[in-house]
Amino acid sequence: MARTLLSFLLVGALLWGSCQHPTANTPNLQDLRIEVRGVSVYSQPERAQSASSVSGKPIFVIFDSPVVGSSKCTQYVFEVLKTHSELQNEFELLYLNLDNRTRLDTPRIITENGSTKKLRTVGDEHLMFMFETFHGFSNYLYAVLDEDLEIIKEPIDIFRNQEEVLDYLQD
């Protein structure tokens, strides 16, 4: 329910902003991507969700924790995405670095079951997104979500080779 409301507000805000000033330089969703390992991805769930709402494509989310160790699984994922570029056109790609220590301008406070958590970094927000979406934590996780950020393909935490990545994405 909260995600649906967030999606509604996000799309509304984007539409409102583009309607207010027809000549304003409103950024294209593609311009909001970053490059990771040679692949263009979103780095914020809200942006991937907005893009998915517009394109109708599912979101392939990649949670990574490079400080823990560059995951061989994540390396396989990006190698597959680079060599099979058609897959990049089938999904909105969302890369979330759990170790991102970039400070938030304003810490986000979450109160749940009587306890308060303060999210201070982008990585903290990514971890919270993981917990809220998948009800747990993992250093690496890969999943496919719909435009409402609901799971449409069961998450997986390990790929042993590139063929497993291809099977997962093409299934």
Rank of each mutant, 00 (worst) to 15 (best):
G12C: 10
K57Q: 09
T26N: 12
L32V: 02
L145D: 00
I109T: 14
S53I: 08
Q75C: 12
V36Y: 03
A51Q: 06
C73P: 00
L32C: 11
A51M: 06
D167M: 12
Q170D: 07
L6D: 04
S85E: 11
P58G: 05
G17F: 07
S115Q: 14
L87N: 02
S40K: 08
R103S: 12
W16R: 09
E164R: 01
R47P: 02
R120S: 14
L15E: 14
L93M: 05
I59L: 06
S53Y: 05
D148K: 05
R33M: 15
G136H: 03
E147N: 10
F134G: 04
H84L: 09
A51E: 05
C19P: 01
A143D: 05
E154A: 07
G114C: 11
L149F: 08
P27F: 01
V61L: 01
Q49A: 08
A48G: 07
F63L: 04
S55V: 03
F159Q: 00
E86Y: 09
H21P: 05
R3H: 03
E79A: 08
L119D: 00
A2D: 13
P58I: 11
T102I: 14
M1A: 12
V36F: 06
D146W: 03
L149P: 02
T4A: 15
D148F: 08
G69T: 07
R101N: 09
H21Q: 13
P66W: 03
V165S: 03
V11L: 14
D146E: 04
T26D: 06
E147A: 12
T23D: 15
I34N: 07
R103Y: 06
M1K: 11
L141W: 00
Y95W: 08
I152D: 10
S43V: 07
F131C: 11
T121Q: 04
T83H: 12
C19G: 07
F91Y: 15
A48M: 06
I151H: 10
E147G: 10
A13R: 12
V36T: 02
V61I: 08
D157G: 07
S138A: 10
H84P: 00
M128E: 15
D105R: 07
E46D: 13
H135A: 05
L87H: 01
Q44N: 12
T116A: 02
P27D: 02
